[in-house]
Simulated assay, not measured.
Amino acid sequence: MDLGVDLTGWLVLAFGALLVGFGKTAIGGAVTISVIAFATVLPTRESTGALLLLLLLGDAIAVWTYRRDADLPLLSRLIAPVLVGVLAGAAFLQWAPSGWIAPLIGGIVVVMSLMEIGQRLARVRARRRRARSAGDSQAPAAVPPLTDAHSRTAGHTFGSLAGFTTMVANSGGPVMSLYLVRADLPVRGFVGTFAWFFAVVNLMKLPFSIGIGLVRLERFGLLLSLVPLVLLGAALGRWLIGRIRRDVFEWTILLVALASGVVLALR
């Protein structure tokens, strides 16, 4: 079967496909690396459509795996703003030069990540000062959520940004991660809510992507060859989630989101 890429190109895509599965069942921001891998081998617009089909496979696996773990009330508040973001992203793709896409999304993610990390570090320092002044020798308690992620303002802001960035470049993972890390969810609740969110969003994106020519049947053979890598990555993610501490998980999410934003901004 002619896959349309050389061996080196296929290995890069295979690594990206592995991270699709891993990101869907563990660290969502890892999918940003998949975006870069696919865009390195395939034309930018074509890579977006090809990756979307693998993301839908990863979504199906993640939704089944975490089918009882999603925070559905939180997700319900995101439906309208996400749809607005997807429509805005589809319009943006019609006229925006391709060179604008990655730096714009990367810049947004970097700013949001640094704000989140800065606020968390400030709160950790404040709690340590209060503990010392009270003569408490024990380690400070875990940092509480910085905002109410169920609030209308947070839902509208993060939902619309997630819809826009995922429509434009399949890069909504870091934005959604920053939103959910504020929601004080357990690890499986975080991953389950993330999985259900992107399953719905990617299905919403599919007709738009077909309509503007991003999804093409010419790459079906190539995508079929990458399916086992998505399945392997999903299995690795499921293995990790059962063994990672919540605080480690949250800081990993924040740092992966920041790194993803920097990489996108510098592309």
Rank of each mutant, 00 (worst) to 15 (best):
T48V: 08
A126C: 14
P73Y: 13
A62C: 08
R45M: 07
L75E: 13
M112E: 15
M115H: 06
I79A: 13
L56I: 09
T147Y: 15
Y66K: 00
R45Q: 05
P43V: 01
L56F: 08
A90H: 12
I105F: 03
L75Y: 11
G58F: 07
L114F: 11
D69V: 01
V82P: 03
R45W: 03
A88Y: 07
Q138G: 14
A142W: 10
D148R: 06
F92Y: 10
I101P: 01
V124G: 13
V143M: 09
R77L: 08
L83W: 00
I108D: 14
I117P: 01
Q138N: 15
S76N: 15
Q119P: 10
L146P: 05
S98I: 03
R127D: 15
I101L: 01
L53H: 04
L72Y: 13
S133W: 02
M112F: 08
R68N: 06
P97Y: 03
D148F: 04
I101A: 01
L72T: 10
A90Y: 13
L53I: 04
P145L: 13
T48D: 00
G49E: 01
R120D: 05
V109M: 08
A102V: 00
P103C: 11
I108Q: 06
R129A: 15
A96L: 05
G118E: 07
A134S: 14
L51Y: 00
L55F: 08
S98Q: 08
L83C: 09
L74P: 11
Y66I: 00
S113P: 06
V124I: 07
R120T: 08
A141M: 11
P43T: 03
L75P: 09
L57H: 08
I105Y: 02
R125K: 09
P73V: 05
V143Q: 10
G49L: 00
D59F: 06
G106I: 03
S98K: 02
G99W: 01
V82C: 05
A142S: 15
L121N: 13
G99E: 07
R125G: 13
S137G: 14
D71A: 13
E46Q: 07
L57M: 14
P43D: 09
Q119T: 07
D71M: 05
R129Q: 15
L51W: 00
L72N: 11
R77Y: 11
G99L: 03
I101Y: 00
L104A: 11
V109A: 10
L52E: 06
G118W: 06
